[in-house]
């Protein structure tokens, strides 16, 4: 088994994995990934971020992907959140919606609660779990040489896909984000549905 490297800078690599953020409907988990995607989309109306309801991001992306087969859906979630709802990987794999991609931003820690080490920091490999669940197209990105392939996997549109992005514990810089879930819903739906 390869060594885990938690070295990449999330603020640098996420934009490289998603060079065209406006091409996606995006769901983000809470904490770091909400900040990552707010920055990535410039707080776009194609983004719905969670501030709680931990564990909901991937299943929300699934519902959105099934509802909108005409759009590409991207879920950006953290290792802690995904660990809370691993079964969703199995549910997604069974249905395999081709328009759904997941990026798990894995720093091996629970950042929001004070950087306690998470299971992935103790050896749990979420890409292997995704493969075991049956997700057909996956990648791990933990150094610069893997970024181009990671971007390809994110853009894959024939199957659901999963990218495990290992990053350092360096926090992303502060950014104001919308914590009003109802407001976020209205903005998102208005932009998508008119």
């Amino acid at each position: 088994m390869s060594t885990f490297k938690f070295e990449l800078n999330r603020e640098v690599v996420i934009p490289q994995l998603v060079p065209n953020p406006s091409d996606y409907l995006m769901i983000a988990g809470l904490g770091g990934t909400a900040r990552d995607t707010t920055r990535l989309t410039n707080a776009g109306s194609n983004l719905y971020t969670l501030g709680g309801a931990m564990g909901a991001a991937a299943s929300m992306g699934l519902g959105l992907a099934l509802a909108r087969p005409d759009k590409k859906v991207l879920v950006v979630t953290g290792d802690g959140e995904l660990l809370m709802s691993l079964g969703t990987l199995a549910t997604i794999a069974v249905l395999n919606p081709p328009n759904l991609s997941i990026i798990c931003v894995d720093n091996g820690h629970y950042g929001e609660t004070g950087y306690q080490v998470s299971h992935t920091g103790r050896g749990v490999n979420l890409e292997e779990i995704a493969i075991g669940a049956g997700i057909k197209v996956t990648a791990t990105v933990q150094d610069d040489s893997q970024v181009a392939n990671g971007a390809k996997v994110v853009a894959h549109d024939k199957d659901s896909s999963f990218v495990l992005l290992r990053i350092s514990t360096k926090e992303s810089s502060p950014i104001k984000r919308n914590l009003n879930a109802a407001d976020c819903r209205i903005i998102f739906r208005k932009a998508l549905l008119g």
């Binding site: 909901a56 299943s59 519902g63 959105l64 992907a65 099934l66 909108r68 739906r189 998508l192």
Partner: peptide, 10 residues
């Protein structure tokens, strides 16, 4: 999550 995601998609 499934039901809420579906609502976001109309």
């Amino acid at each position: 999550g499934l039901c809420c995601g579906a609502n976001l998609g109309g």
